[in-house]
Nucleic acid binder design. Structure first.
Length: 973
DNA sequence: GTGCCGAAAAGTC
DNA sequence: GTCCGACCCATTCGG
DNA sequence: CCGAATGGGTCGGACGACTTTTCGGCAC
């Protein structure tokens, strides 16, 4: 133990010696006399890397194996699973006609009801209608896929174009009369061409290699590697198992033999799966880059260069993308992700794509993988044409646009329950696995993997999965949880291979593959462009150019309108892309009633940094109110709608605003969108109330009469006025219009306090003021120039926020004892992911929990902390001198010994933490936004911040804002 | 059935 | 909300 | 002059306190 201590000592930052001292230190000078005797450890953290891993004591060996050996958990799981297997009940789920339904219907209805967006959604409605009438096709087909009749295509480019061409053609006449039976000419070519392509993948490879210098350049680089850096966990292994039969959907399945046939050779070609990409070297990557840009230059003139250099860079990027795209498309087809024309997209096709994405961390690659998949879907979007939309939703874990507020109502516990039932294992077993594996999806997959499937159910399809998810979301009321679990089982049962994993992750709401909305938008944009380009022959530079432009256009639209709207409006109907990219711009404009992503601000560490950035430029400082972001819209009919920061419709929560806002608007104003902060307000005292007060407002079915917490609006931006979008205007202009169009109303509406001063002193002074007035700090914004436009989510961080606790040495910092630990998940698997901290009650000689902490650690630190703390785990559980709420105990208890220095923004009264309980309130005190700073090596557990100190901090904080807030801490609630 | 309580989920920061 | 890490892209530095 | 190093910006994913809402289970 000792040995370890000192070894580890080297890792930690220096003790307080020359670092800043904690607030605690100052308060408590008495203790301070002790010298920092640099355990040899107080050296430099820099040698951390070189530290031989085994240098720590014995336990670390265990840890080590734990960490590096994924196999371990694997085998564990295996044994458990085998046991469980016998008891497993087999459930055969026959896909019902449910599948025929178009799930989107539901959401559409809701949309119409809950917001006035009928217009927006119209296009979708149409198609739905059409499809609904379509008689359900029975798709029992002979589905021996003609495997390969096509001679090889010349190049990947050819291939893509061809695919585009024929399918596009086919699609049109096809949709309405869905080719019933066997692959007719149309559908066949579509499928086969790609399929054969994929089977020949290696050959293509060679060809490409030889033709690299040819005109097809950008595509030829296809083989850029996915030097997979990710954990070589079993997912790769499993991949092979993830075979799917396609081409059939309902009814009994045929022997899988034919599948296997397809499968094996493919795997053969593909087999060094992770290596598959491996022949692709970084070299290639490099070449690709340069070549791409070369060609670029050649192509220059063509387009009116509206945007200066940005344009160029975007192009370069796109050309690269174009290149990777080819790769992805050929690689993509390696998975068995083909499906027949008119058939619903197989879920496995999607998960294949996910797997591919999961293997890389490179965003461009991710994007191109996705692009080629989306393209495929776009060309063959299922029988109702809505699969693209569904796929997109599945990619970002949504069911519908945010503002419709459809939620799954499913969390970890329920999923665990479902998995347990589905695999016949106990909830406890699953939880145990979760600890070691760190991901429920993987746990589920492993659990499933052990089961023998006697029957094979029909494979999952995207529409079916989507339908299940919406069903889950819709379920409510009595026994709804059981129903949800039932649906989950229905989903899980037919899962093969990695499908399980992704189903579960979808339920959890986290795909965890490095793909999220932003990346998806670019991928979608590229897919759309490619589809438009279709069969047209273009010089490759041109293509890159178009790609870039398209992406830019779609992104621009995306900034104004939710992603889902884009698709809703344009891409869900069968005649995908009616209006094309250009039409898109027209169709998706900023409209009152449709929320846009609010602009965000970047944290700033010092006033100096603000000045650095805004040197010599005009800027303004505004109060940063401590409330809730509220984007308020007024529609043409005078209706007021309030959206939250995450585009949730909050109108129901703020009926008072709906009533009062019109009073603040000038007569001339017909429609608007303003960006504001809603702050709790004491109408009697005319003071702002703390955030905690605001959150106690009811959220649903709020009637104005029984509102207890009044709200004051502080407006700081105007995005739309009388039919015109102001996003592109400079902030000065927007602010001017804002002030012209609205007028403050005492106790209800005001403009955010602002100051245009630009010296360091002025800012500092204003910052102090803001805090005295009960705000969090300042927002600093450019006033003029192109950098002052309102750009939702682009340079998403064009505003700066300046909070007192960011400023070095200003914020409250405490030294707290680590008393408990929580196992980490995801990338924190195999270390603790968070810790339970306590302060010290000197009188009672007890430790009182104060907060958990899970941020501020580097990966290395987390690792080191595991090594340091795991020996302190108490087998016997909580020590009796630790006061803690036991309803949700940590995974492990520690002997109180290690002290963390922790920074916090605020202190809050807590329902569950014990710190300083009884000193200022019945409740204990906790920390808002706690983050780890360093280990206090120089402190022992009983040198930690004491309860009294915590209480003092709290009082001081209440005092500091007394000027404008309800008095002290006691009478607030 | 009703009312109460606790756990889970979702959403704010 | 905070924070870290990987990637992308542009710029600068050094041979 | 070109490749390597550097640095800022983005994006994704770990994790925090606290509140209301919803649902299941239990006692009555």
């Amino acid at each position: 133990m000792m040995g370890k201590q000192s070894t580890l000592g080297k890792f930690w930052g220096k003790p307080a010696a020359n670092g800043q001292t904690t607030k605690t230190d100052e308060v408590k000078k008495t203790h301070e006399t002790e010298e920092v005797q640099g355990t040899g450890g107080s050296e430099v953290p820099s040698d951390t890397q070189n530290q031989p891993q085994d240098s720590a004591a014995p336990s670390s060996a265990i840890i080590q194996s734990n960490i590096s050996e994924t196999g371990k958990s694997d085998s564990e799981a295996k044994s458990i699973a085998t046991k469980a297997e016998s008891s497993r009940k087999k459930r055969r789920v026959v896909e019902s006609d449910d599948e025929e339904e178009i799930p989107i219907d539901a959401s559409r209805d809701i949309a119409m009801r809950s917001t006035s967006l009928d217009q927006e959604i119209e296009p979708l409605a149409e198609t739905d209608g059409a499809d609904d009438q379509e008689p359900p096709k029975k798709r029992v087909k002979t589905q021996v896929q003609a495997d390969e009749k096509e001679p090889m295509r010349e190049t990947a480019v050819e291939q893509i174009r061809e695919k585009v061409e024929e399918t596009a053609k086919a699609q049109i006449d096809q949709i309405k009369e869905a080719p019933e039976s066997n692959p007719d000419a149309v559908s066949e070519t579509a499928t086969t061409s790609t399929r054969s392509a994929f089977q020949k993948a290696p050959i293509i490879d060679q060809k490409l290699a030889s033709t690299k210098s040819s005109a097809t350049n950008p595509f030829s680089l296809a083989r850029a590697g996915t030097a997979s850096i990710k954990t070589v966990s079993d997912k790769t292994r499993k991949q092979a198992a993830g075979a799917i039969k396609k081409g059939k959907s309902k009814g009994k399945l045929d022997p899988d033999d034919d599948n296997d046939e397809n499968e094996l050779p493919n795997d053969e070609n593909y087999s060094p799966v992770d290596g598959s990409a491996a022949h692709a070297s970084d070299d290639d990557d490099g070449k690709m880059r340069t070549k791409g840009s070369d060609s670029d230059e050649e192509e220059e003139e063509e387009e009116a260069v509206d945007d200066e250099e940005e344009e160029k860079s975007a192009k370069a990027a796109a050309s690269k993308l174009a290149a990777t795209l080819a790769l992805s498309s050929s690689a993509n087809s390696t998975g068995k992700s083909e499906w027949k024309k008119g058939d619903p997209v197989p879920y496995s096709a999607l998960t294949d794509c996910f797997e591919q994405i999961d293997k890389t961390t490179k965003r461009t690659l991710i994007s191109s993988y996705l692009t080629s998949f989306l393209l495929k879907v776009a060309l063959n979007p299922g029988k109702d044409g809505g699969d693209l939309l569904r796929v997109v939703y599945l990619c970002i874990n949504r069911l519908c646009p945010d503002y419709m507020g459809i939620e799954l109502g499913i969390g970890e516990s329920l999923i665990i329950k479902a998995i347990a039932q589905c695999t016949g294992r106990s909830v406890q077993q699953i939880k145990t696995d979760l600890r070691t594996v760190g991901d429920l999806g993987l746990v589920a997959e492993q659990s499933r993997g052990k089961q023998k499937t006697l029957f094979k159910s029909a494979p999952l399809t995207v529409p079916f999965v989507f339908k299940c998810l919406t069903d889950i979301a819709k379920a409510s009321g009595n026994a709804s949880q059981a129903r949800k679990v039932g649906i989950i089982q229905k989903l899980l049962t037919p899962c093969t291979g990695s499908e399980t994993k992704f189903i579960v992750r979808s339920l959890e709401g986290k795909l965890r593959i490095g793909l999220a909305e932003k990346t998806l938008v670019t991928a979608l944009a590229h897919a759309i462009v490619l589809k438009e380009v279709g069969s047209k022959k273009l010089p490759e530079g041109k293509l890159a150019d178009i790609l870039a432009k398209g992406a830019e256009a779609v992104k621009a639209v995306y900034r104004q309108v939710q992603l889902s709207n884009i698709i809703h409006n344009r891409y869900s109907d069968s005649s995908l892309l009616k209006g094309g990219i250009e039409g898109l711009k027209e169709a998706c404009k900023l409209t009152p009633g449709v929320p846009l992503k609010p602009m965000l601000a970047k944290p700033t560490k010092a006033i100096g940094e603000v000045l650095d950035r805004f040197e010599g430029k005009e800027f303004t400082c505004e109060y940063k109110y401590d409330g809730e972001r509220a984007q308020i819209h007024m529609l043409e009919d005078g209706q007021i709608v309030v959206f939250s920061r995450n585009s949730e419709n909050m109108s129901a929560k703020y009926p008072d605003l709906v009533e009062s806002i019109p009073r603040c608007v000038d007569k001339s104003v017909k429609t608007f969108v303003i960006d504001t902060e809603a702050v709790a307000y004491d109408i009697q005292e005319k003071k702002l109330l703390p955030f905690q007060q605001l959150t106690t407002r009811k959220r649903k079915d709020v009637r104005t009469e029984d509102i207890t917490v009044r709200v004051h609006i502080f407006a700081f931006d105007l995005l739309y006025l009388n039919g015109e979008s102001l996003l592109q205007k400079e902030l000065v202009e927007r602010r001017r219009l804002l002030q012209e169009s609205f007028h403050p109303v005492e106790g209800e509406f005001a403009f955010a306090e602002s100051s245009d001063g630009s010296s360091s002193e002025q800012i500092a002074e204003f910052l102090d003021e803001s805090i005295k007035d009960g705000c969090e700090g300042l927002m600093v914004k450019r006033l003029t120039s192109a950098d002052s436009t309102y750009e939702p989510s682009r340079r998403s961080i064009n505003w700066l926020k300046l909070k007192k606790d960011y400023l070095a040495g200003v914020g409250d910092s405490c030294d707290l004892v680590v008393v408990g630990g929580y196992y980490g998940k995801g990338k924190r698997t195999n270390t603790y992911g968070a810790f339970l901290l306590a302060c010290y009650d000197a009188d009672a000689e007890q430790f009182q929990t104060a907060c958990k902490i899970g941020t501020g650690f580097s990966d290395q630190m987390l690792q080191d902390l595991y090594n340091l703390l795991s020996p302190l785990e108490l087998a016997s559980g909580k020590r009796s001198d630790i006061q803690a709420d036991m309803s949700k105990p940590p995974d492990v208890w520690f002997e109180p010994k290690v002290v963390f220095e922790v920074l916090t923004a605020d202190l809050t009264l807590s329902p569950i933490y014990m710190a300083a309980q009884g000193l200022v309130d019945e409740r204990g005190i906790s920390l808002r936004f706690p983050r780890f700073i360093r280990i206090r090596e120089d402190k022992d557990a009983d040198d930690a911040t004491t309860s009294e100190q915590i209480a003092e901090f709290y009082e001081a904080q209440a005092l500091a804002s007394k000027g404008n807030r309800g008095g002290g801490g006691n009478d607030e609630y």
